[in-house]
Design a protein around this nucleic acid. Structure first.
Lengths: 224, 224
DNA sequence: ACCTGAACACCGTTCAAGT
DNA sequence: ACCTGAACACCGTTCAAGT
């Protein structure tokens, strides 16, 4: 029979290879065939360490998110802390574009997985320090988390289309033109906003959204 | 050779059946096998009307979203309009839970599809009427759209677990207990917020988030 | 123009057999 | 305890052939 592997396979190694495949080839690039090839093994070996593909995807997601949230920083004001965590997730999602759909899928599977609490905690602990009534902590954190993941996911998709600066302005021109060309009756707003999209800075625009929600949170005790 | 179908197949019929399958069996329930069986035909017939599975999913998403946004209502204040659109999407996503990941995937594929403009327009046109500077229209609309889709998706996932009222409070108790049982060092926020989750109204909490962002939008011209 | 249905390549997963 | 690799059931898609 064939020789066994010289060094033992590990779960961490499998997860690391999975992240590599996802990064280079996207979600559809993660297959057990590709995995066995890179790891020079058979499917049975992987199934010894990992229950199934879903668990592997969850583990890859968890590893990348933990990494993104682990960055140590000098402590700042609660607002600055929220901004820093948001940017950390923004960058992680830009670097690993498969993360966005994966995270929203995991959020949409209830709080069973370990990723949902981790993300809510990373933002919520600073919302708590914002000095708003406890009754609005959860709502405020939800608004921030969903905006951050959604906007970062959309940005990552755009970022993937373009790499060079020339590509980028061409791409934005195309988007702007597409919006400006929509039906005037049905899409008045999109047409009016088309010009804006042409020359905006992604991170700046993203942070403006975070600030908008933070402002709403600050004013929440005086809600109508 | 076998008889041909008596009545011609149509693209709309295929999309309608796809929505049915997605509703009853979830995303993994939509297969060409199941489709051919329900439509009493072969795969080739479907491929005549539809380019591939991705296009079919997009079309199903588009049909359901168009339906959700088409509801006519008495015109109200811009804030009320935003709330109404948000609730319309909330309900649609609760009714069709496969919609949430599908929508975020479509948002994350750039503004190529027809669904992204449709959703942004439905909310943005009322943001425009809110009386805030044009420069913040797009940011404000983004914040609302991403919150609405994210929070609605998470709600739909929870709603699927429970149906009866008894199930519901059991489920919330379990979630609350899980959060309260998290590590005290790592998850102080989640533990503090655990009790809150036990008896909240989903739609009310969802709308509170929308109001929070609306409040932020109203105060945006005085951002620091 | 529209449909049939066999066939193909690929996928996740299992499992008896090995060390 | 950990790994091998053949095998299975299922999937999206193609295409020559029919009407």
């Amino acid at each position: 029979m064939a020789q066994r592997r010289a060094v033992a396979l590990s779960r961490a190694q499998i997860i690391g290879t999975a992240v590599e495949l996802l990064d280079t080839d996207g979600e559809s690039g993660l297959t057990f065939r590709a995995l066995t090839e890179r790891l020079a093994t058979g499917p049975g070996a992987i199934y010894w360490h990992v229950a199934n593909k879903g668990e592997l995807l969850d583990a890859a997601t968890g590893a990348v998110v933990a990494d993104a949230l682990a960055a140590e920083r000098a402590a700042g004001s609660p607002r600055d802390e929220v901004r820093a965590v948001a940017l950390g997730l923004f960058d992680a999602i830009e670097k690993h574009p498969w993360l966005a759909p994966q995270l929203s899928a995991q959020l949409s599977r209830g709080p069973s997985g370990p990723v949902t609490p981790k993300i809510f905690e990373s933002i919520g602990r600073h919302v708590r320090d914002l000095g708003v009534p406890k009754g609005s902590w959860f709502t405020a954190t939800s608004a921030l988390v969903h905006y951050v993941l959604g906007a970062a996911g959309q940005n990552a998709a755009n970022a993937r289309v373009v790499t060079s600066g020339k590509d980028r302005s061409e791409f934005l021109d195309a988007v702007s033109a597409a919006w400006a060309g929509l039906d005037a009756e049905e899409y008045p707003f999109m047409r009016e906003v088309a010009a804006e999209v042409r020359d905006h800075d992604d991170r700046e625009q993203f942070l403006a959204g975070v600030d908008l929600i933070l402002t709403g949170i600050g004013a929440v005790h005086s809600l109508p």
